[in-house]
Design a protein around this nucleic acid. Sequence first.
RNA 1: GGAAGGAUGGGUGAGCUGGUUUAAACCAACGGUUUGCUAAACCGUCGUACGCUUGAAAAGGUGUACCGAGGGUUCGAAUCCCUCUCCUUCCGCCA
Length: 419
Amino acid sequence: MHNIKVIRQNFDEFKKKISDRNINIDIDKILLLDKENRDLIQKKENLEKEKKEISKKNDKSLFKRSKELSNLINNLTNDQKKKKSDLDLILSNLPNIANSDVPIGKDEKSNKVIEIKGEIRKFDFKPKSHAELGENLNMLDFDLASKTTGTRFVFVKKDLAYLERAISNFMIDLHTQMNGYTEISPPYIANSNTMFGTGQLPKFEDDQFELKLDDKTEKKYLIPTAEVILTNMVKNQILNVRDLPLRFVASTPCFRKEAGSYGKDTKGMIRQHQFHKVELVSIVSNDKCLEELERMTDCASMVLDKLNLPYRKVLLCSGDMGFSAEKTYDIEVWIPSENTYREISSCSSCGQFQATRMKTRYKNDKDEILYPGTLNGSGLAVGRTLIAIMENYQNSDGSINVPDALKPYMKNIKKIGDN
RNA sequence: GGAAGGAUGGGUGAGCUGGUUUAAACCAACGGUUUGCUAAACCGUCGUACGCUUGAAAAGGUGUACCGAGGGUUCGAAUCCCUCUCCUUCCGCCA
C-alpha cells in the first residue's frame, strides 16, 4: 500500500507513475478524501479537547454540555471513519509503482532478456514431454488425481516422488548453507489480515482457496505461496536495523485456483492447483532493496547452475509485474518439448509496499521509524524443476538421468526408470 | 470438546470498591556528571499512530487516541457490562 503522506506531497508524480500499471481508478479522489478525512479529524479533536477539560473539572453544571459534545463527536467520528475507509479501499486496490529502471510496457512483449545461460542440449531423438515420460514410467498419474480430487492435480510416484523430495532438500540446503537463509517450516494456512499484508487481498480473492470454517467471524486461506506467511512473520512490529537483513527459506505446498487461466497449460504439471515451491523472503532496510534483489536472483539462478539446466533471466516490464512488486526478474528454464523457456522463479522487490500494508517498521541508527523493504523469490518452484530435469535429462529409452548435484540426496541413484 | 484463571509501555509489574494516574515502581536501554580505566553512585531521556503548527533545513511546539480487539453504560472507563481473539492450568480426545 502506498503511504498517503508521500502521495499527498508528490501527487502529480504519483499519478503519472501509477498510470504505467494499467489501472482504471479515479486517482484524484484520493486527494479529496484525504483532505476531508483530515478536516474531520481536526474538528473531532477540538471537541474532544473541550470534553476532556469538562471531565477534569468535575462540575455538574457542565455535564449537559459534555453530553452534547459526546453526540457531536460521535457523528463526526462516524463521518471520519467512513471517509477513511473509502480512502483505504482505494489505496488497498492500487498496485505498487514500478522502479525507475523497469521498462514501461503493457504485457510480456516489453520484457527484457538480461542474460542467457547454460547450453541447450541437442537431442539425437525427439525429446518427449514430461507428461509423456512420467506416464510411460507410471510415475506421474493425472487420471488418478482426477479420480480422487479433480483436474490440475497429479500423483507423483516412486522414484519421481523421491526425486521431487530430493530437489526440495537440495535447494533448502543450498540456501541455508551457502546463501545465509534461515529455514522455516510455516503454517500452510493464513488469515485474511496476513493475505492483505502481502497483497493477495482484497483484489485477488478469487484466486485463493478459502477454507470452510465453523467460526464465521474470520476467513482463512490456503497459502498461494510461502511468501505470504514468511513475509508476514514481521507484520505489526518494529524491528531494529541491527537485525536486518532477515532472510527466510521454506519449502511448502502452494495452492492456487488459477482462475482466469482456463485452457492454459492443461496438459502436464506446468500449471497445477497444488505444487511445491522453495521460497526465499528477505526483509531489508529500505535503501537495500535493489541490491538484495540482485543477490536473491543470484541465489535462485545458482540452483539452476548447479543442476546444469539452461535458463535465461528476464526483467519484467511495468505491465507484467505482480501487484506488490516494484521490480521483478523472472528466471525461465529451458523446456525441450515446448522448445521454449518457461518461468521457474520470479524474484521481486516490493519496496515498502508490503511493509506499509503489514505495518512493519524498523528503527534506524538515528532512531527514525521507517518502513523496511520486502523481497520474495522462488528458489525454485519444485514442480517445474522436476519437469525441467525430466525433460532435459531424458534418454531415448524414456529413462531419466539424475543430475550429479542430486545424487547425494538419492542414495546415488544414477537413473530413474532403468529396470 | 469441558472447567477455571489471565492479557497493562522493550521486560517485570501496581492500579481494577469508576474522577490527584498526567498509567506508579523496578529492570533494561540511551545521554550526561563523577572517575586513571571499569564498576558504582547521581541527574536526565525513555512508546506508537494520526492531526495541526514553527522552521529554508536540521530540529522543535502542540492536540487527540491507544492498558489484547471491537462494541456498550456514564458528565467521566485501564477500572463496570457484552462479544470476540489469544495465552496459562486442569480434564477428555488425539498423530
